[in-house]
Design a protein around this nucleic acid. Sequence first.
DNA 1: GCGACAG
DNA 2: ATCTTGTCGC
Length: 190
Amino acid sequence: MVAGVDVSYATQGDALVAAAVVLDAETLETVEVRVVEGTATFPYVPGLLAFRELPSVMAALEQLTRTPDLLVCDGYGLAHPRRAGLAVHLGVLTGLPCFGVAKTPFVFGHRDVGEERGAAAPLTSDDGEVVGRALRTQPGVKPVFVSVGHAIGLDHACAHTLRLARRYRLPETTRAADHLSREHLRTLTR
DNA sequence: GCGACAG
DNA sequence: ATCTTGTCGC
Ligand SMILES: [Mg+2]
C-alpha cells in the first residue's frame, strides 16, 4: 500500500485542504482517500516547507483506516540545504518509509539526463555526496527529482517512482492527492 | 555582500 | 502554491 499526500491552498484567505490517497502498489487501484480542511499557520519559506504542509498532511494520514507501507511526498527529502526536506520530516513523524518526488530543481544540480524513460543523473552536493536523483519518467519530458526521506534507499525510491509514473510524468499517488485536494478546495471556495 | 530559493 | 492566455506536440 502506497500513500500519496499533497496540499492545496485558497487564493483568498488561509484555507487549505490536505489529501492522503492510498493506492495498491501493484494495480495502482485506489484503496482509500482522505481529505482534511485546515488553515495555513506558517508561511511558505524555501527550506521550511515541512512546517507549512505537514500539520494538515499528518491530520489526513491519521484519518486513514489502514496504515500505508510507503509514503510519497510532493517535494524533497535529503536533497535539502540541511538534508531535512519535508519527506524526511514526514518519515520521522510517521515512522514509515518515505521519499520525495519534486517537480523542479531546488539547490542541487545534475548532469544532463538521457531523453529515454528511466534515464537518470545523480543530484550531488559541492563535496560530491549524492543526495538524490534526477529521473526521467516519460521520454522527452522533463525529469522529476527523487530523494530519500526515511527508511528507504534511493534505488528503491526511484524504482517505485517509475512504477507509479508509467503513463504520466508524476507518480499516480501525487496526481491523485493533488487532484483530490484541489477539487475539495474548489467546493469550499465556490 | 548578493542572489537563489521545493510547494 | 495560485492566476492566466496562448502555443506546441502527440
Ligand atoms: Mg504540492
